[in-house]
Design a binder for these strands. Sequence first.
DNA 1: TCCTTAGTTCAAAAGTTATTGAACAATTGG
DNA 2: CCAATTGTTCAATAACTTTTGAACTAAGGA
Lengths: 118, 118
Amino acid sequence: MTLPHPNTDQISLPIVLGVLGDPTRLAIVRYLASKEGAALNCSQFLDLGSKTNLSYHLAKLREAGVTRAEVVGTNRMITLRRADLDARFPGLLDSVIAAAVDDPALPAVGGHDIEVPA
Amino acid sequence: MTLPHPNTDQISLPIVLGVLGDPTRLAIVRYLASKEGAALNCSQFLDLGSKTNLSYHLAKLREAGVTRAEVVGTNRMITLRRADLDARFPGLLDSVIAAAVDDPALPAVGGHDIEVPA
DNA sequence: TCCTTAGTTCAAAAGTTATTGAACAATTGG
DNA sequence: CCAATTGTTCAATAACTTTTGAACTAAGGA
């Protein structure tokens, strides 16, 4: 049971940019980058949408070549394809992540975005 | 007669990425980068689509803060907002342009993409 | 085995974006 | 003034994307 991923040389610039041009997906990528190394399952992202909706967004990221999903039991362990993206589009992912980290408009994963005082 | 542009601090990462996630617009940006300094009018891009369609794509780029359009007579002189984008998202535009330059799938402006021999 | 957990798939609805042609406005040159 | 050039706007349509809920699969634990 392996999921389809593009090869490094099949990763397309406009498709990657288009896929990253969505706040939910950018938030996913930012969170993955902040947990670099760790493989996260989909449930980590439930703050960002419903289970079905995340399945959709995570599939988009995977099909574009931005993430890799490995099947481990009933889980899909998700990682950023950092090395592949760096090889294909040097510097792009780093600058996107750096900009995303500073973007207060993106939805947050660990949540607690803003606590409104009583 | 000046056209509306976002301020530098109003430029949004997901909007910029989304706008660049289109082959026609990426081709426009690539061409502008290759002619850095020169201000080009819209007709330069007619290889990429109809007049109306270009008007649409150029408006998207301008509204996202990727380009600046200055009205000069009946022309709109278009330039890349390189300094503003660099200030807001360091390294992003450079890496996108570098990747776009190498992308054979993007439509070409000076055209002559491939000449089919008789 | 049965139940739970993790995630997918499907079809429908809603929303957004791209493309087109016809009509329009503004400037410039004759 | 008249005509040509440059580009916009509008409405229609076509094409895609996002979101949803219900139904499903597959693995793991009691």
